[in-house]
């Protein structure tokens, strides 16, 4: 039952974050780029206020998979190191937690460029 609820909460919270993104694009008339930037910054701010970790505890992947978690983990790393090492920690800690998303994107982007070729198909 716990497993079922964790899926349900991941689905609902993840879905809601995506709906916020959709509203920014449709109602706010923003480009996908602007939308994602706003969400990342929101994630960072929420972590600064100490609100994002409780959301992860509640929703699991529903909070870690959306791009907001990228802002959260950058801030989280910076804050953790800042606590230990002060000023220098702000810089050194930043990528402590988040490296996986970016390094995966770089490596897989490179591999994809080796294998694939862009194609223009309508459907």
């Amino acid at each position: 039952m716990i497993v079922f609820y964790s899926f349900l909460f991941a689905f609902i919270v993840g879905g809601i974050i995506c709906v916020i993104g959709q509203l920014l694009m449709d109602v706010g008339k923003l480009t996908p780029g602007h939308t994602l930037v706003i969400l990342v910054v929101s994630g960072a701010i929420l972590d600064g206020l100490g609100l994002y970790e409780p959301l992860i505890d509640f929703a699991g992947a529903g909070a870690t998979v959306p791009i907001t978690s990228f802002g959260n983990s950058l801030t989280h790393g910076a804050l953790a190191e800042a606590e230990k090492h002060g000023w220098v920690g702000v810089l050194t800690g930043m990528f402590e937690v988040t490296s996986s998303g970016i390094s995966a994107a770089i490596v897989f982007g490179f591999i994809a460029a080796l294998i694939f070729k862009p194609k223009g198909k309508a459907n």
């Binding site: 694009m25 996908p32 694939f116 862009p118 194609k119 223009g120």
Partner: peptide
């Protein structure tokens, strides 16, 4: 198509609505 889209809009395989 491919040459124009990549210049004016997004990469061909980018998932934009």
């Amino acid at each position: 198509h491919n040459a124009i889209e990549r210049q004016f809009r997004y990469p061909l395989d980018y998932g934009a609505q």
